[in-house]
Amino acid sequence: MMNTWIYARNLVVGLWIVFKRTFTKPVTVQYPEEQPYLPPRWRGRIVLTRDPDGEERCVACYLCSAACPVDCISLQAADNPEAHERRYPEFFRINFSRCIYCGMCEEACPTNAIQLIPDFEQSEYARRNLVYEKEDLLISGTGKYHDYNFYRMAGVRTRDKDKGQGEHELPPVDVKSLMP
């Protein structure tokens, strides 16, 4: 019997607490008149960045597409004869009508190429306009990570970096040397 009274009272108290909200100010931000503050690590629109030398950072390793839980990233690797042994995506497509902005692609990316930026204003009237190709995704800056250059660390040879010229690399081994 006691419990019943407590339940009944709690119901009424709950009603009263909610009713009191009539006199408080709404917390709603009146977008778009009022622009909200988005933290720099906000997971919004996806971009492909370039390394400090201005080359595409994406090496078409397919990890973002594998990490994507909605399978909305697809790409095809190609080798660029201009930049020797430097792999790049022949196409890179994100279907934003499927994207859930979870940021797994950014986490998976080993070269900091794919990044989510604080921009969410992507609405379109036609769904097909939400399919972004590489031209739409590629920006000309480094995004959030300014100094990282995968090919400086990777050990493979590229046009502008011979074997042994990268960071933490010894000069190529001389096979013919018998020195201990």
Partner: peptide, 15 residues
């Protein structure tokens, strides 16, 4: 099981 790109491989042709 981890085949990727199902929703974007042909999205440039049809949605």
């Amino acid at each position: 099981e981890r085949c990727s790109g199902r929703t974007s491989l042909i999205s440039h042709l049809t949605m």
